[in-house]
């Protein structure tokens, strides 16, 4: 049978106590901060949603639902569906993924896009955050009325001086979002349609 001498026992006991106390403190901090962290994340998302959704008087986060693999936030004005928002990820940015919040009218035209997370080069690729006129060039466009490529690739969207990869990735991701909406529009509108729409859908279903 193995025997521990006094010194070994002291070492085990010391490390055990340090780890146990640290674990208790971490657990307490987690309990204490869990709700504020969730609130801060909701607040951050709320600000982003307000920038891509049209005027509405519902709570898009409270009514969010997952349709076809995307968590979609609906905006309603007096129960009528006014806009939809969801986040897409462009995996092919210049340095890592670019997260983009898409704001769409129910007819499939863009309201606004907003980059929520990126690691692009400051001063070059980060024009996708700072260059408002470039961001505005997406407004009101649908899948078919504009060529969804940067100008260098024969499309209609500007690239930035010294940065082509970043806007190319964003344009591609936004186009993908519009294609996703076209493919799943029926399911999405059925899910978020206002009460009248739902009644109509039920009627048609009969």
């Amino acid at each position: 049978m193995m025997r521990f001498d006094r010194e070994q026992l002291q070492m085990v006991l010391a490390l055990f106590l340090v780890a146990a106390i640290a674990a208790v403190l971490l657990g307490m901090t987690d309990l204490f901060t869990r709700e504020p962290i969730a609130a801060a994340q909701r607040q951050t998302l709320h600000h982003a949603l307000e920038q891509v959704l049209p005027g509405h008087n519902n709570d898009p986060q409270a009514e969010a639902a997952v349709v076809a693999g995307h968590e979609i936030y609906p905006a309603r004005q007096d129960h009528a569906l006014a806009g939809l928002a969801w986040e897409v990820v462009a995996p092919d940015g210049y340095s890592g993924s670019i997260h983009i919040l898409i704001g769409l009218r129910p007819d499939g035209r863009l309201l606004a896009i907003r980059v929520t997370d990126h690691k692009e080069t400051p001063g070059l690729g980060d024009g996708i955050v700072r260059n408002q006129s470039w961001l505005d060039s997406f407004r009101d466009h649908g899948l078919d009325d504009i060529r969804w490529l940067v100008k260098k690739d024969g499309g209609d969207f500007d690239q930035f001086t010294g940065a082509t990869i970043t806007p190319r990735a964003v344009v591609k991701a936004v186009k993908g979002a519009l294609e996703f909406y076209r493919a799943n529009r029926a399911a999405i509108v059925t899910r978020f349609g206002d009460s009248t729409d739902a009644a109509v859908a039920a009627e048609v279903g009969k």
């Binding site: 340090v18 780890a19 640290a22 987690d30 901060t33 504020p36 962290i37 801060a40």
Partner: peptide, 21 residues
């Protein structure tokens, strides 16, 4: 290292909660 890591995690959680941006 355990002591330092515990403090870092705690400070990180506090910042996440009250200095989110």
């Amino acid at each position: 290292i355990t002591i330092i890591a515990a403090f870092v995690t705690i400070i990180g959680m506090l910042m996440d909660a009250w200095m989110h941006q």
